[in-house]
């Protein structure tokens, strides 16, 4: 079972932090298909976090087909992200390198590239899940 943590200074909405932590664990293989996730009550007691936040995070993950809640039993992992991400990583890295070259040619410095990347990432995440 995984343990959640909350970074109040990250600027990221608490429920998104939970979603990301589950996905991270799925990617790294810390969570496997059939594993049980902590109950809402456990997370609430652990983090002193609003239960609706946890509910929202789990609903989000369920919507993406990653987890499944079985009434009376708990919440379980349906699918893992580990395989998919490993396979596609090489291709993704190649296209990212191409993009970085382009950015450097356009005269962007390291800080600007980082800012642009993070900004775009946040924006797309926000649109994607909000």
């Amino acid at each position: 079972m995984i343990t959640f943590r909350l970074d109040t200074r990250s600027g990221l909405a608490p429920y998104l932090q939970l979603v990301q932590q589950v996905k991270h664990a799925l990617r790294l293989g810390m969570l496997e298909v059939g594993d049980q996730l902590p109950t809402i009550k456990q997370i609430v007691a652990e983090l002193a976090i609003n239960p609706n936040t946890v509910l929202k995070a789990y609903r989000e993950l369920e919507h993406e087909g990653l987890i499944e809640s079985r009434p009376g039993q708990g919440t379980f992992v349906l699918k893992t992200l580990a395989g998919a991400s490993l396979q596609s990583q090489a291709g993704l890295r190649r296209s990212l390198l191409l993009w970085l070259q382009e950015a450097q040619q356009a005269g962007l410095e390291e800080e600007s590239i980082q800012a642009l990347f993070l900004d775009t990432l946040r924006e797309s995440l926000r649109r994607g899940v909000a």
């Binding site: 009550k41 609430v44 007691a45 983090l47 002193a48 976090i49 609003n50 239960p51």
Partner: peptide, 14 residues
Amino acid sequence: RREFLSMLLEATVE
């Protein structure tokens, strides 16, 4: 503060 909030929020779930 943290302990109290945990207890409180747990009660909202229960």
